[in-house]
Design a protein around this nucleic acid. Structure first.
Lengths: 336, 336
DNA sequence: TTGTACGCGTTATCAC
DNA sequence: GTGATAACGCGTACAA
């Protein structure tokens, strides 16, 4: 509760001097006063009132996080483990860089504007997809924002993933293990750079091996456990393929469950490769071979880029994270 | 960016009048000025500057969330799916009640104090366990705080779970299905009300059925997938039990994986019951029978209790959430 | 090197 | 019913 005035009085100096010490402007203060004041600051446990700082200055050192709703079950943000890990990376980096994190779900562009102006938020991290009006609002307000897994056309900072390579690596791995008929399970592709990229990689690997793409091998479903299990049950009836590439761990694991519930064995009869390498991949039985991405790292990078933009006013090119393939036990080598 | 002063000028009234309109003090303003001002407020898209409000008033309408680190892999908060869903519930309710959410990891009591005073945070939600110094700090600052899954002795608001009943239901269910030798897998019990409660329920069900507790049936491990898988592998060697009750889904699923990797079949040879009913329970193969708790609901309730305490200054009794048993397919009825 | 004074946007008190 | 005005805590010209 101690204020700058309190410190100044106790030290017998002016508030300006205290402020200078607080901001490390040591050139303007004699060494001994610095020491004296610092001592008092320690004693009194002074903590700046950020609200007052924001009011007088421009920066609030608050970073906002909004997330579009990709819930596993019902509404609410961050239910998806992917988002949880992402947030974890975001929080850590935000903290390390001396910023604060305000988390909120936002219904429309007006709410977004309110949020931003209410607290004079310095910049925004956007997880997922949002209506065009959100971007228009942000541009109008000239607020820096960074998108994770964004679509193509919007401006602003972007954290991408090398989705195409991931799709390619997964599919090539299956082909190298003797599989020639590979089902592609994904969420609806329309307009999604992410899913589209993974699919392109899938197609490239197929083409490279001289394998023709079969329309019935493309399975688009909703991003829920139930949809995945259902798809697994449907696929269990088919005997015209030997492998599945699912473009998210959640889908891979739930499809796997659906298959096994109907007596099909993984990987003995059907091999599966997933995408993301979240905790559920390691937990799956058998442990899931999948494309790995550094989820928490992407969160950190998003914060770094955003803070750069906030402090230096720099816009940077989209940053693309690499992917790797993690071999576990859900793929069987087969010989024809 | 419009301020109260701007509005006042445009309306040709004083700032006080605008403020009165803003706060619905209609008795002090004539109906026509109210309408006029409201019109201007709409036009100009006025949004209050919260920092200024906090500075002059006392309440910030910010709720803080800190989480002890119970990470699946490396450091960082909210990596655990349980925490993710919890946060989701917290965020929604916070928003519905007109508050804002600041999320942060905190290393020690000093950092906690800084966080709270920096922003004049109204109240705190604590997820998990924290050192005694945290509580001392909060008491000293007279900040309302609510603990989710707290230990016994601290003051403050508490959201509990009926852990004992959960342990009892799970164990009784296994016994009803013919199992008499039930291994109890958990995280270290020492001082944990949560794990201790579940264990007590387990013991009660055993006693009720006249089954003696065997020391070798108590397995304490770390809360990680790796530890669970390892324990599953170890248990796969044993043939002196028919069922496992794991006091967290993560443990149940990873033990299940470990068992199956070593050729033991679930539920044919070994039945398993989990606890929490997170997404991974539905995703498990076979889908996990487990004790259900309303995780998001607990988050909401925490916010409600906290806001009550903030606004009415009321301290309330610990609120205990009920549990139910969800039957899926990881338990087999056996006859001796 | 140090101090004074003003303004940031809002609310509350008190006078009109 | 309405309007000045003083705070809230801090940063920063500007003056000394």
């Amino acid at each position: 509760m101690a204020t700058i005035r309190d410190i100044a009085e106790r030290a017998g100096v002016s508030m300006t001097t205290v402020s200078n010490v607080l901001h490390g402007r040591s050139s303007r203060v004699s060494a001994e006063t610095v020491e004296c004041i610092e001592e008092i600051i320690r004693e009194t446990g002074y903590t700046p009132n950020m609200n007052a700082r924001v009011l007088v200055g421009s920066s609030s050192r608050i970073i906002g996080v909004i997330s579009s709703m990709v819930p596993i079950s019902s509404g609410g943000i961050f239910q998806d483990p992917f988002h949880a890990v992402l947030l974890s990376g975001i929080e850590k980096c935000t903290r390390d860089l001396g910023y604060f994190l305000m988390v909120r779900s936002v219904e429309d562009a007006n709410e977004l504007e309110s949020l931003l102006t209410n607290w004079n938020i310095d910049g925004l991290i956007m997880i997922g997809f949002f209506p065009e009006s959100f971007y228009a609002q942000l541009e109008e307000m000239r607020k820096p924002y960074v998108q994770i897994d964004s679509s193509l056309r919007n401006r602003g900072l972007k954290i991408w993933l090398d989705d195409e390579t991931g799709g390619y690596l997964a599919t090539r791995y299956l082909i190298e293990n003797g599989h020639r008929r590979i089902v592609f399970v994904c969420t609806p592709m329309q307009g999604s750079r992410v899913v589209g990229g993974r699919h392109n990689g899938y197609l490239r690997a197929l083409a490279e091996a001289g394998i023709e793409e079969k329309p019935e091998d493309l399975c688009e479903i909703g991003y829920t456990i139930e949809a995945g299990i259902e798809m697994g049950e449907k696929l269990a009836e088919r005997h015209d393929f030997t492998a599945i590439f699912a473009c998210a761990d959640l889908l891979a694991c739930s499809v796997c469950t659906g298959l096994m519930m109907h007596g099909r064995r993984v990987p003995d009869e059907i091999s599966i490769v997933g995408y993301d390498d979240t905790a559920m991949a390691r937990l799956n039985c058998p442990p899931l071979t999948c494309v790995h991405q550094d989820v928490a790292g992407r969160g950190s990078k998003a914060v770094e880029m955003l803070v750069d933009a906030i402090e230096k006013g720099e816009g940077s090119e989209p940053y693309t994270f690499p992917v790797t393939l993690v071999e576990r036990q859900s793929v069987k080598r087969i010989t024809l």
